[in-house]
Design a protein around this nucleic acid. Structure first.
Lengths: 130, 130
DNA sequence: CATAGGGGTTCCCGTCACTGGAAGGTCAAC
DNA sequence: GTTGACCTTCCAGTGACGGGAACCCCTATG
């Protein structure tokens, strides 16, 4: 398989696949002409990576997960720990965004949104007491 | 005021303040010795920026908001539009994270987390049907 | 008066996970 | 034989800073 086909089937851009090779996540063989020759195993790994990335795991976490995946003697507890840590990080991020969202929604709701200059949003940003 | 005092009062690191000057968000005067000389107006701007950034506005959005703040003939509708767009972006981000969170939480819940290698998290990432 | 320290300054590199683009080699079709 | 699609490598840029080096300035102390 050439890179374009693998890209289509794994749902990742060719650039990303080359990048994953560069940082050592995959190691496709080469054809005589220098083209990358992807095996099914490479495609499988790329699909795994794409899925993990879509769940928000960092490249480093993906590396860990791949290593666990390929380690037949892994303990599921190790996988769960990685996933749980990521879940906690996601929860923290959601909480942070909801905090912003709350403040912002209030400000937007109180802004007339007309031609006049008075604006509670700017007043808040400027630190003026309401 | 020197940079350390302004940093304390605005709640921003000195590095960030220098960066904001570099990209043209503020323009403090200079003392004879080359030190930045911050006026109250600079401090005010920095506090404004810090607050806007803490609400998740990008630097470009902050630039726009500052320009609107300094434009006495602004229409509050313009401010509201920027804030509403950002609010929509936050909502989209929250939705995305909650999507990840849902999948991940289910996977974590189904993982035994023991010494055995079987793991629904890895199975899902590998694309195996359950 | 020399020096030690705690400011300040600029400049450059690194972050994270790619993305865009240039310059050039390769292959299949017309 | 030439187009055009594909492949390659390499370099630069993204956003919003942070770390650290190398160096200047000011004050206090022995």
């Amino acid at each position: 398989m050439n890179i374009a086909e693998v890209a289509t089937r794994a749902g990742l851009p060719p650039k990303t696949i080359r990048y994953y090779e560069e940082i050592g996540l995959i190691r496709p063989r080469r054809q005589a002409n220098g083209y990358r020759a992807f095996a099914d195993a490479d495609l499988h790994k790329l699909a795994f990576l794409g899925r993990a990335r879509s769940l928000g795991f960092s490249i480093d976490e993906c590396r860990t997960l791949m290593a666990l995946y390929e380690d037949r003697s892994r303990a599921s507890a190790d996988v769960k720990a990685v996933a749980q840590a990521h879940l906690d990080a996601i929860d923290a991020k959601i909480a942070e965004l909801q905090g912003m969202r709350g403040t912002l929604a209030t400000l937007v709701a109180h802004c007339a949104g007309d031609h006049r200059p008075d604006c509670p949003i700017l007043a808040d940003l400027a630190g003026e007491a309401c």
